[in-house]
Design a binder for these strands. Sequence first.
DNA 1: TTGAAAGCGATACCAT
DNA 2: ATGGTATCGCTTTCAA
Lengths: 340, 340
Amino acid sequence: MSQTPKQSADSPVPTSTDVARLAGVSRATVSYVLNNTSAVRISEPTRRRVREAAEELGYVPHAAARSLRAGHSRIVLLPTAHIPVGPLYGRFLNEVQWALRALDYTVVQYGSLGLGADEAARAWAELRPVAVLSPGEIALSPHGVQVLKRSGAKAVITLGPQRVEGAHALVMDQRAIGAAAAAHLLERGRRAIGVVVPAEEGLDMFSRPRLAGVRKAVTAAGARVEPLTMAYDEESAAALAGRWRELGLDAVYAYNDEYAQLLMRALQDAGIDVPGECAVVGADDLLMGKLLRPRLSTVHIELPTGREIAELVDRVVRDPEGEAERHDLMAAHTIPRESS
Amino acid sequence: MSQTPKQSADSPVPTSTDVARLAGVSRATVSYVLNNTSAVRISEPTRRRVREAAEELGYVPHAAARSLRAGHSRIVLLPTAHIPVGPLYGRFLNEVQWALRALDYTVVQYGSLGLGADEAARAWAELRPVAVLSPGEIALSPHGVQVLKRSGAKAVITLGPQRVEGAHALVMDQRAIGAAAAAHLLERGRRAIGVVVPAEEGLDMFSRPRLAGVRKAVTAAGARVEPLTMAYDEESAAALAGRWRELGLDAVYAYNDEYAQLLMRALQDAGIDVPGECAVVGADDLLMGKLLRPRLSTVHIELPTGREIAELVDRVVRDPEGEAERHDLMAAHTIPRESS
DNA sequence: TTGAAAGCGATACCAT
DNA sequence: ATGGTATCGCTTTCAA
C-alpha cells in the first residue's frame, strides 16, 4: 500500500468526495459514517472501509462548508481589546474561553484594532457567530447590536460595567470597587481621598465607574475626592508624588494593585510615610501586594467563574428571548493590610 | 417534526439574493458592486441602487460562503495556552495579533483545552487556516503539521524554543536568558547558583531551556547549579527559603521577575540578606523590579516586534517554499541592579 | 442499506 | 453593462 503519503507542493486537499471514491461508496454514506448519524444504519464493513479511506487520505471536514450547509455555526465571538487589561481580568477572560470550549463552542477572539463600533460589528457579523460576548472595554453600539442580531447572532452579550441597548447584559458594576475602597478609607478616618485614574487609554471603562463609586461614598460622608491622572511608569508616579503635599490628601485609592505599588514606591521615595501621612489602597488582590512593605491593602474582587459565564451564554443561545440580565455578578470587599 | 429553524419569528438573514431582488439586478451584479470588481464595469446608477439596497437590508456578506467559494481563507490560527504565561510574553502575543490583523488576516485564537497534539491539529485544520502560528507552549507534533499542511495551510510556524519537523521555525532560544543570568552571577563571583523552576505546568517549555542555559555556562566555569522547584505562591516560596541555608547557595536565578520578587521576599523574611548572602536575578525586566528594595537585577529580553513576526508569517504564506527559519529573534542581556 | 440530488451563500466565467 | 449559471464542500431529505 501507500507508504509515505507523497504530497507535493500542490496536492489538493482531500474532500468527502475523495473519501467516497476511495471507499467505493457515495458522499452521503461518508457523511453518515463520519458523523455517526443515528437515523441511518450503515453496515459495519462499510463503516470500516469509509473510516480507513478517510484515515488514509488524511481527510478533515471543512468547517465552513459544514456550517454553511447547517445554517448556523457554534462560533462565539470574543472581541479583544488592543490594550492589555489587568492580570486578574485577563485570567478571567481566559477562563471564560476555556469554559466555552468545554461547551463545544468555537471561540474566536477577534482583535478589532482601531475599528469603530459599527465597522467592528460588521466585521464580526461576517463570521456569523451564534453569540458575541463583548467585554466592557470594547465599544459596542446599539446599531452594532442590531447588525449582529440581523446576521443571525442568537446572543449578543455585554460583559462589563455598562449595558447596551438591545444586548443582554452581564453587568459587573465597577462602582462597587471604588465604593468598597472609599468606605474603608473613611472608616480609617481619612477625609481627603485621591483616586488614581490611569492615563492609559482603554481603561476608562473601568476607571470611570470606580471613580464614581468613590465619589458617591465620599461625598455622602462630606469628605473630599480628588481624581489624579497617572500613567503606568515611574516618571508619572514620581511627578505625582512630587506634588503630593500641595494636594493635601491623606489617602489614595490607586485603581489597582499595580498602580498602587508604583505610587506607593514613589510616595515613599518622596519621603511621605505610608500609611502615616497617606493611606494607600489598591484593588485586585494580587499576590504582589502581600509582598510589599507595608503590605498593600486592597479590594478583593470576586469575579464570576468562567463556567458561570459560559453557561449564561449557552442559556441565551438556546433561549434568546429569555431574561439573562444579571447584576449580581461581581462582589467586592476590602482586605485591610498595612498600607491603610 | 424538526423542521428548518425559521430564524425565529423575525426576518431571515439577508443574502445577496435579497439585495439583488430589492435593487432589481442579478446576484452577480451585486457581487461586482460590493467588491468593487475592477474587471467589470457597472454604471453609476446601478451601483447606487445596489448599495442602497444592501444598506437598507443591513446586508453583511457571509465569510464562510465566501471563503468556500474562494477556496482559501485569510485565517491565521493562533493556538492559545490554557495557562497564563508571563506578562511580557502575553503582551508580545497580543502585539502579534494586532499586526496580523493590520495585514488583513483574521486572527482566530483557539484554546485547545486538553486536546492532544494530534486532535488539536485536526480541530484547527477544520477551520482551513491559511497559516498556523503556534506558540512554543503549545504541543504540535510532526504528524499534526502534516495534517495541517494537507488541509491547505500554507504556513505552519512554530514560535518558541524548539522546532518541529516539517514546520517553519521562528526560534526564540530561551537558553540565552539563562546563560545571561549565569554569566552575570559568575562575574559577580558567585559559585553556587540555584535556579528556580516553576512548579506550574505548561511553563516547562520556557523553564527547561533556561535552566539548560544556566547549566552550560555554570558548569563550564566549574561552579555548581541547583534546580529548585517552586510554585507561584507564598507557601512554596517560604518553604524554599526555610531550607535555604542547607542548600549552600550564594545566588539564585529565579525564572522571571515575578518569581524573583516572591522568592526575594521570602528570603528576606527568613533573615537572609540580599544580595549579601544571596544574589537574586530575575528576567523580563518588568517595571515592578525597579520598585523593589533592593532593586531587582534582571535579564532584559528583547523580543521581536509583533510586526516582524506578522511579516514573517505573511512572507511564508506568499512563498511557502521559501526559507523562513530564523534563530536570531531573541536577544537577552543582563540589567544589573541592586539584588546581585 | 445506499445513492442521487437539492441546496446553503458568494463569486467568476461566459454569454448576451 | 448585466445576467445566467457552475462551483466550492458538506448535509439531508427522498427514492430505490
